[in-house]
Nucleic acid binder design. Structure first.
Lengths: 105, 105
DNA sequence: CTATTACTTAAGGATATACTAAAATAATGT
DNA sequence: ACATTATTTTAGTATATCCTTAAGTAATAG
């Protein structure tokens, strides 16, 4: 129960999920889309997502093709989509306002 | 956007949220309900939740009374409730099955 | 069967984070 | 004013995690 939240705590993993959310992509393609991170690092994140059942892999020749298992994410799928749509922003704004108040002191 | 997921990654913080989900509780009461953790540690977790706007505090005498800001959690509220109800278990079971398969090799 | 491409796994290091104990702050009581 | 209770903050440490480089697999190509 703990693990799904943990898996999504990492921004890179959320970005990977976004990339394979509605089209499948090979590991290499995913890595190519991401900035400032090595291929192995991406591969390690993919492993975490696989172990959580959040993505599925399919072999095609020498490529591994990934896609999100949206159903498996349950209510977390909506939370992810909200975050990509910036719809978690009310929360963020509140946090920022609090931060500002703190600094004013 | 990153921060809310990060805040919920920590099991203790999810437990704190559960404790103040539908009744308010003083910081000390929260700490008393939790096992194997010091009061300061709980206080630090409460700070994270406060900074994320996930809980509200109210002073009453020398006690600080906390409650969850469920509205502010947006779609994450449903994910939390699902996790407490064990309804994220399909995900977990898949992950465990995968784990078993790996060990069998 | 050697080389190349695509990817994963392993080893090691740097940084983040969660914890404890101790000190500081805040409100009330004597 | 001083003590007590409730909580937070600070300082320091241990552990987790994310990253990089290097080495290991797997599949196809020559």
């Amino acid at each position: 129960m703990s693990a799904p939240f943990r898996a999504l705590a990492e921004p890179r993993r959320r970005e990977i999920l976004r990339l394979v959310w509605d089209r499948e992509r090979a590991a290499g393609e995913i890595a190519a889309e991401m900035d400032d991170v090595s291929f192995p690092a991406v591969s390690q994140h993919l492993k975490v997502l696989r172990d959580e059942g959040m993505v599925e892999v399919r072999k095609e020749g020498r490529r591994r093709i990934y896609r999100a298992r949206r159903e498996a994410l349950g209510p977390l799928a909506a939370a992810l989509e909200a975050s990509w749509a910036g719809r978690l922003s009310r929360l963020r704004n509140l946090a920022e306002a609090r931060e500002r108040r703190k600094e004013e002191r």
